[in-house]
Design a protein around this nucleic acid. Structure first.
Lengths: 163, 163
DNA sequence: CAGCTAAGTCTAGTTGACAGACTCAGGTGC
DNA sequence: GCACCTGAGTCTGTCAACTAGACTTAGCTG
């Protein structure tokens, strides 16, 4: 997947029927799910707080939480406030935590193109030194890869070409 | 936005009403749009090819293309095959191209957690040296930041706290 | 048992996706 | 000028998901 020359009969010779992006989208590729995940990354764990943070209708939130638990991105952890019944919180699993680069990328693009004129509302910083966080594309040899144009797709071991 | 300690009254002190993630999601936060963008990054430009690659119903595709043009992520470029009328192709703008880290992150997460047992279907490589592409989180001082737990959010210049 | 409250579930109306068919609009050949 | 062509839409009725608001559930406490 890169910006690619279209002077071929098949516009995309890397069109696979088991595309990983599409697999990811099947799990998280819609607004409410992303917002739930955003809340989870912000440490929000309880239903009511998730609802306040996302603005999702309860039915939508309930369904998304159940789905994310089922898919293994969130797990339920029981808790009980004094005076209340036992309830569950929702916490990110490692599988869920590994979505972090996606969330940061979404934020940075929004910071750049959709933020208010005052600038970004939240800045992510390195806990140890305080410098802002960046997302970098590089190759395994350590080269910087600043643009999609310097990326060449290759068919991988699991490639199944589509019609 | 990081994995955060929840032992406070406000579960998320960085809850802003102008969240950049949410701004991004308002533009691209649903399946069909991402699939259109995937095709665009793969060099697919024409309606019929977009449709073949995404599987989107024509009405959905037409609406998404129009929206992406309106939002400035795609632009229309006229073309004409001999024997045919003038038509438009759809190409990524810089604004659209800057979504690349999101697309790569989606792919990598899918490669890791949702791919077939044979492995990823497509591997992105550095054009100049052939090594696989990676996404790295680091800070502006050059430190590696391997986990959300090493990230500290701060309110930015545009922060508008939510209720 | 009544009251409480967080986390769901329900319901009728609205909106968007969907499959399939139809239309449109320039180019070409007759 | 007309018929044919074809890629890019547009239309339509059905189905699925979202939505706002209300209601229910299920443990705990007094």
């Amino acid at each position: 997947m890169s910006a690619y020359d279209a002077s071929m009969t098949e516009p995309n010779p890397f069109r696979v029927e088991n595309c990983s992006i599409e697999r990811t989208l099947a799990v998280v590729g819609e607004k409410w799910t992303f917002l739930v995940l955003r809340e989870a990354f912000n440490g929000v764990r309880r239903f009511a707080d998730m609802q306040a943070g996302t603005g999702a209708p309860r039915q939508v939130l309930s369904a998304r939480l159940a789905r994310l638990v089922e898919e293994g991105l969130l797990r339920k952890v029981p808790y009980r406030e004094p005076g209340s019944r036992r309830r569950d919180e929702y916490r990110l699993t490692q599988k869920g935590l590994d979505l972090y680069p996606i969330m940061v990328s979404l934020m940075h693009w929004g910071d750049r193109y959709e933020a208010d004129p005052d600038g970004p509302p939240v800045v992510l910083t390195h806990r140890d030194c305080g410098s802002p966080i960046e997302i970098a594309l590089r190759c395994a040899d350590g080269h910087e890869v600043p643009s999609p144009r310097e990326v060449t797709p290759r068919l991988g071991p699991g490639a199944r070409l589509a019609g």
